[in-house]
């Protein structure tokens, strides 16, 4: 990291050591319902957290200090001011990176906590995978009466998110690659254009085949006709492509600005052959083997002329 400190950093550095909370009271006493909700959410069945002599899960420490939706009244300005300065400098995004908690004694239902918090440090400007920004570390001391019961050190990165060049909100939807049509598969794509999914059938041995090929894999016969698929099928297998991002394939209402992951399905048609296609109507992470799907045709507009692609929609939409 360079030794050159920008002017912003100098002003941020001035916040080090400033209190962000002094003797502030928790909104609720430590209580059984909040403990139970926490344990339910996290699947924590530790018997120490219920019953007559219950303690609160120690990792709930910060939860007792949170302002929630209504926030804290009489909030100290220092932290807000610091965050506002960073916002103004373009560091509008925030992510928590570190949490270090020390527990001096367990909290029990009925304990009423108070806490003090201080801005411990502001880092140099750092460039991370998320963007460029500053790490801000705060330390909180939690007390019951005069007794220190725990400390909580918390680090956030306040950063300017990287601009994703191909996915600016105004960018047009990335064009879908056109199918490659040749003499062997031309009949298939002519069918798709007319919203018919045609499977090749060997006239010698009646074996169905897909994708389209010059000859029969079963008997070697070169003559064929076609059978139209009913359009019913199931997901035989699938993969989810996370990287590299490919906006043209993203199956999302925001496909223009989200080059997120997408699912590639291997669909087994009711007729028995399998084909690779998109599974639509569910998020990529809800695609599962065995999902029933139904054929649908989508027209894609393209500078080179529109074209149609077959896709498969999950029955009933949401799963």
């Amino acid at each position: 990291m360079s030794e050159v400190h920008d002017e912003l950093w100098m002003s941020l550095k001035a916040y080090e050591g400033r209190a962000t909370a002094v003797g502030r009271a928790g909104k609720d006493p430590v209580n059984e319902p909040m403990i139970r909700h926490w344990c339910e959410a996290l699947g924590d069945t530790n018997p120490a957290y219920s019953g007559a002599d219950a303690i609160a899960p120690p990792t709930m420490l910060q939860a007792w200090t949170m302002g929630g939706l209504s926030g804290h009244t009489g909030r100290s300005q220092a932290y807000d001011d610091l965050l506002t300065r960073l916002d103004e400098a373009g560091c509008t995004s925030v992510v928590a990176t570190d949490c270090e908690q020390e527990y001096l004694r367990p909290l029990r239902p009925g304990d009423e906590i108070t806490f003090d918090a201080v801005i411990e440090s502001v880092s140099d400007r750092k460039t991370t995978k998320l963007g460029t920004g500053y790490f801000v570390t705060t330390r909180m001391d939690v007390r019951v009466g005069p007794d220190l019961v725990g400390t909580h050190r918390f680090r956030i990165l306040k950063y300017a998110p990287l601009r994703k060049t191909p996915t600016a909100p105004t960018a047009p939807k990335a064009p879908r690659p056109r199918p490659v049509i040749n003499r062997d598969n031309a009949g298939f794509w002519e069918g798709v254009d007319r919203h018919r999914l045609l499977i090749q059938r060997c006239t010698g041995c009646s074996t169905l085949r897909f994708p389209w090929l010059p000859g029969c894999n079963a008997c070697g016969g070169l003559d064929w006709d076609t059978a139209e698929a009913s359009g019913e099928g199931t997901v035989y297998s699938y993969v989810v492509v996370h990287h590299p991002p490919f906006p043209a394939f993203a199956e999302s209402a925001h496909a223009a600005d989200v080059a997120g992951p997408y699912a590639v399905g291997l669909i087994e048609l009711a007729e028995g052959v399998r084909m690779i296609s998109n599974v639509v109507g569910v998020p990529y992470d809800k695609v599962r083997i065995g999902l029933p799907v139904r054929l649908e045709f989508r027209r894609h507009e393209d500078p080179g002329g529109s074209f149609v692609l077959p896709v498969f929609r999950v029955h009933g939409g949401e799963v």
Partner: peptide
């Protein structure tokens, strides 16, 4: 919380957490 649960699930209800420090 899940890291804390992982430890107490393993060491049992008499185990007492003293420190949990994590980086994401």
């Amino acid at each position: 919380g899940l890291v804390g649960r992982y430890i107490t699930d393993h060491f049992g209800p008499t185990a007492v957490l003293r420190k949990v420090a994590i980086r994401l």
